[in-house]
């Protein structure tokens, strides 16, 4: 487990370098990646459905990214991107392709649905937390906010 947390942290930093995030922000991006991944893994470990776990991972990721963006006055994208990668359903997408090649269309359809739902859940999780943040801003719950 510690090994995987370290791997997520390294991955967040490496994705930041890959997308040329300013060096001073690499640490925050990696931190955000670790947070989102931990939420996802702990929920999945507690018996939550994989799609729901990814949704809440996305929610945590979006909320933390918006909070960091307001605080550091940088675009939220810089904190979303590193956090997004460890959640990507790469294994599921690959397994779908393997089943298709092997001619096992039944399991392939099942796995494709799983991939699409997981990816959609992450995207929708980010969507939800960003929308809630904007609503809170529009409602004036957050004083002294600024465009970022």
């Amino acid at each position: 487990m510690m090994m995987k947390i370290a791997a997520v942290f390294v991955m967040g930093t490496a994705v930041g370098i890959m997308y040329r995030i300013p060096r001073s922000l690499l640490f925050y991006g990696a931190l955000n990646a670790t947070l989102a991944w931990l939420v996802m893994v702990l929920l999945a470990g507690a018996g939550t459905d994989a799609v729901a776990a990814n949704f809440f991972g996305g929610v945590a990721l979006g909320a933390a990214a918006e909070a960091l963006a307001r605080r550091l006055r940088r675009p939220a994208t810089m904190f979303v991107i590193p956090g997004f990668f460890p959640l990507v359903p790469g294994r599921e997408a690959y397994t779908t392709m393997r089943y298709v090649v092997e001619g096992r269309y039944g399991p392939a359809t099942e796995m494709a649905a799983q991939t699409l739902l997981t990816a959609g859940a992450i995207a929708f999780g980010i969507f939800v937390s960003v929308t809630v943040y904007r609503l809170a801003l529009a409602g004036g719950l957050w004083k002294g906010a600024d465009r970022c």
Partner: peptide, 22 residues
């Protein structure tokens, strides 16, 4: 940003660490 070699190293780390996660 970074020149080719550090960028390649970072990209490699992305792949390697995801393998650890799997």
């Amino acid at each position: 940003g970074f020149s080719l070699v550090p960028a390649m190293a970072a990209t490699g780390l992305v792949g390697g660490s995801f393998a650890v996660l799997q």
